[in-house]
Amino acid sequence: MNVRKIPASQITEAVKKLFMDCNYYIGDDISQALKDARENEDLQIAKDVLQQLIDNNSIAANERIPMCQDTGMAVLFVEYGDKVAVEDGSFKDAVEEGVRRAYIDGYLRKSVVSDPVFDRKNTKDNTPAIIHTEITQGDKIHITAGGKGFGSENMSAIKMLTPSAGVEGVKKFVLDTVAHAGPNPCPPMVVGVGIGGTFEKAAQLAKRATLRPINTSNPDERYAKLENELLEEINKMNIGPAGLGGKTSALGLNIETYPTHIAGMPVAVNICCHACRHKEVTI
């Protein structure tokens, strides 16, 4: 079998660039959505907040500084080709070193503590990262990376709905979660919804949904329609930019699904702020 060898240093460099870039340069989808929202708002304060966010993102890009001080916990979704071998080190170590280099050399904030309950001691290099790996066919590695801020992460929720709840149950849980979040997660938000799988799979799908560009739709038109309906309902909530009221409570809502058990219908809602940061690379 032919195996493609990739030096560990190449993975480290790629990961470093992903995290620096995603913190400095907001995606075109979010950038356009902020501009459209500014035009769409009637309230002056809403227009002004959106303009501040647009200006903020320009400053960040021009000066190569993070758009938000919370540069997040490093989350990576990796599709790892089964014909790839890492040379001179392990894949995991190469990724962690890339995160370390991005957060230290790139002037990103180190926001990770070693132990969640007792020590809570800053690890000082933002490691460890959260790495979701899927083995795929081929000789390439594809990485989607995002810096996830916790103002919005803390507003996320999961519920083990059962089949009889139906689509109405899904809608209610998503809308209740967003309404409860209100002004806290730095609206306008991006809402990721994961439906199906198991308890942990639903949460992972919801995170994955936040990393899909907001100008794309679920390929199943029933879910695409549900995405639009939920976004419309959220934008009627009058949470508005910075929670100060207005028509833009969310910039986008993405749904990802997976088959599930006959007895279940798990739904997870992962909320992201307007600084919805993610970049991708194929190695």
Binding site: V49, Q52, L53, D55, N56, N57, I59, A60, E63, I65, P66, M67, C68, Q69, R109, K110, S111, N122, K124, G151, C186, A242, C273, H274, A275
Partner: peptide, 28 residues
């Protein structure tokens, strides 16, 4: 309230920063 996520913009209005205490807390 300050505008959440307008961090690069807000930094423009900070002219000086001086560490007072709890240095071991890093950013905190």
């Amino acid at each position: 309230i300050a505008i959440g996520g307008a961090a690069a913009l807000i930094a423009k209005s900070i002219k000086k920063s001086e560490l007072i205490c709890y240095e071991d807390l890093g950013t905190e």
